[in-house]
Design a protein around this nucleic acid. Structure first.
Length: 641
RNA sequence: GCCGUUUUAGCUCAGUGGUAGAGCACUUCCUUGGUAAGGAAGAGGUCAUGGGUUCAAAUCCCAUAAAUGGCUCCA
């Protein structure tokens, strides 16, 4: 009689060989119906495998992230089955579940391709196959048999995957007429897959290596109910409406010009207003936190980057040097500000008493990103970092790190970013040659980050191999409207650059010591931050940040004069806005003002001019009625505090 | 950089191997109005760029550029 522990701590006795399904059925009929898989001691397993005695088990349904992942993984198999029917001879590579749905990488063979026009047929075939309620049957297979199977099927990708697997680890899953090499687990049967949609088709390299053959990657998503698919598609539509590229154009924030060059944004007046307000906001916080603003040029001599090591690492793949009439003289557009700041540090001898030195600069940098990588304002070739470098003693690293985390949290909080995660990026322990610096320094830096993050109570994930080549880092990731995760704020420890630049300070015992450098940028870059902010608030910026806080709308040209009076009064109170003096009816002016997402529309006509009042309309709330101008000012100012 | 898709008026987009279209925006005129589009007229286009096929190309083919969805990358 196996005894099973449930998540709530309770114990349950089940008959011998009882499965996850039996467990679910012993709890309730509904749970048995909805169960997709189980976790056994934390490991996801098929619902119909016997449970080991003493295991702690939780039952996964569609509402569990792991349940969804299992469901979508099984859906990938279903799509593969459909593809084998519709495209005989198709070769299958890998097909995992992803955050929203799943994909399968396939090799259709020479001369065949799939376009979105083909999706409906595939979706239909999937649903047709799903209706058969085929069970996903797990079978352990000896390696020799597995090799024979895929040799017979002429599937080179599966054979390659098999090379790394040993007897005892190889399992096949079969549903209907489809068998795949797969670790599993899977849902019980295809019957729960009621809605299927192929989302898009893209190229992907076999095993992610661009030297390998490019496969066709088909993205899809499935749901247990058609309604959920409809809701999902609606969410995607909403995301499109919030896309910063669309809103940036509509709200006249920024633009691109082919003539200027790909990935080089032009900030329009309104976008600039927004951006400068963000800069002021952070500048103020930084001065309070002991940062000293500095300014450095946009270019630097080649030698600067040879010293920093960036020339060797990125020189060939970036913007090429600027030459001068002087033979052999070369300058580079600066791809980062740190080397310049190192030189500022070196302008005077530093004592341990002077540290930390915190140099801050909104520094515009240029990086030649791959053309296929450019994306709106989130990935550009010229951008401004809210950069600062902290030079400190080794014993100050953790403390400084925590202070930086405070600033980042202050920024995210001020802009109402709640859904962020902190990612600690460490060195790939398997491949240390990618990085520069000693093992000892890496270990110290990695420990400092982890401790500081832990003491600040951050929820973190840790990624190995994601560190910068000179040091580990802590990145703050925020989701955009379409659910993509973007890195915004970043904090990076660097034990390397100070050595390369020969930075030093005089320690208490009069010896020379090397300072530690911390790179940090709470926004990351103004460009990316504004992009994510646009999507985050759907273009409805906080009042303190929005380019135009009000528009005064005179009912007719008779009241334009009063409109100017109102505007002057508001500007005297540091509020900003314009007058819509067009020869249009009030309904039209309101419509345009609302579409521009202006927070306050102030309608003024005969009544208002007579009594010195304004009729206030608030974006998203509608007409608030009229009030004395002084009251309006007070109410707005109370929101700005 | 690689694979797919796209590129027509300032914007959003129709369109066909045979002389270029709409709505909005813009200009002018009428209208002086009260909480999400008042009316009329006008102007505006190397159909991304360069080649090719064709009697004829914005349309078909090739190359390039940019945008876009992915992949790889991201100091």
């Amino acid at each position: 009689m196996p005894q099973i522990a449930l998540p709530d701590g309770s114990l349950r006795e089940l008959p011998d060989h009882a499965t996850g399904y039996d467990l679910a059925a012993s709890i309730s009929e509904g749970l048995a119906r909805n169960a997709l898989a189980v976790t056994v001691n934390g490991e996801v397993r098929d619902l119909h495998r016997p449970l080991p005695d003493g295991a702690s088990v939780s039952i996964l349904t569609w509402n569990d992230p792991l349940g969804k992942a299992t469901y979508w993984h099984s859906s990938a198999h279903l799509m593969a089955e459909a593809l084998e029917v519709l495209y005989p001879g198709v070769k299958l590579a890998i097909g995992p579940a992803i955050e929203n749905g799943f994909y399968y990488d396939v090799d259709l063979g020479e001369g065949r391709s799939i376009s979105s026009n083909d999706f409906p047929a595939i979706e239909q075939k999937m649903l047709e196959l799903a209706k058969a309620k085929s069970q996903y049957i797990r079978r352990e297979v000896p390696k020799a048999e597995a090799i024979a199977y895929f040799t017979d099927k002429q599937d080179p990708y599966k054979l390659e995957l098999l090379e790394n697997l040993e007897d005892g680890q190889i399992t096949f899953y079969t549903q209907g007429n489809f068998t795949d090499l797969c670790r599993g687990p899977h849902i019980p049967d295809t019957g729960t897959i009621k809605a299927a949609k192929l989302m898009n088709v893209a190229g992907a390299f076999w095993r992610g290596d661009e030297k390998n053959k490019q496969l066709t990657r088909l993205y899809g998503i499935t749901f247990p109910k058609a309604k959920e698919l409809a809701e999902y598609l609606e969410r995607l539509e909403e995301a499109k409406r919030r896309d910063h590229r669309k809103l940036g154009k509509e709200l006249k924030l920024f633009a691109f010009s082919e003539r200027v060059g790909a990935g080089l944004p032009l900030w329009l007046p309104k976008g600039t207003a927004l951006r400068e307000r963000l800069e002021q906001f952070l500048r103020k916080a930084q001065v309070k936190a002991g940062y000293q603003p500095v300014v450095t040029p946009h270019i630097g001599a080649k030698e600067l980057y040879v010293t920093s090591g960036h020339y060797e690492k990125y020189g060939a793949d970036s913007f090429q040097p600027i030459r001068t009439p002087n033979p052999g003289e070369e300058f580079f557009l600066k791809p980062m500000n740190c080397p310049h700041h190192c030189e500022i540090y070196k302008t005077e001898p530093r004592s341990y008493r002077d540290l930390p030195v915190r140099l801050a600069e909104f520094g515009t940098v240029y990086r030649y990103e791959q053309s296929g990588e450019l994306h709106g304002l989130t990935r550009v070739r010229g951008f401004t970092q809210d950069d600062a470098h902290i030079f400190c003693r080794p014993d100050q690293v953790k403390d400084e790190f925590m202070k930086v985390i405070d600033i980042v949290l202050y920024v995210l909080n001020a802009l109402d970013f709640k859904d962020f995660t902190a990612q600690i990026s460490l060195r790939d322990p398997e491949n240390k040659t990618k990085y520069i610096g000693t093992d000892e320094n890496w270990a110290k830096a990695e420990a400092a980050i982890q401790e500081a993050a832990a003491e600040k109570g951050l929820t973190t994930t840790t990624e190995y191999g994601e560190a910068a080549f000179y040091g580990p880092k802590l990145d703050f990731m925020v989701r955009d409207a379409i659910g993509r995760r973007w890195q915004l704020g970043t904090v990076q420890v660097d034990y390397n650059l100070p050595i390369r630049f020969g930075l030093e300070y005089t320690a208490a015992d009069n010896s020379k010591a090397t300072p530690v450098m911390i790179h940090r940028a709470p926004f990351g870059s103004l460009e990316r931050f504004v992009a994510v902010l646009i999507e985050h608030c759907g273009g409805n910026f906080p009042l303190w940040l929005t380019p135009e806080q009000f528009i005064v709308l005179p009912i007719s040209d008779k009241y334009v004069e009063y409109a100017h009076e109102v505007k002057a009064r508001l500007e005297a109170e540091d509020l900003r806005g314009t007058i819509d003096a067009r020869d249009e009816r009030i309904g039209r002016k309101i419509r345009d003002g609302e579409m521009a997402k202006t927070p306050y529309l102030l309608v003024v006509g005969e009544k208002e001019a007579q009594d010195g009042i304004v009729s206030v309309r608030k974006h998203g709330e509608g007409d608030l009625g009229s009030m004395p101008l002084a009251d309006f000012i007070k109410s707005v100012q109370s929101q700005l505090l």
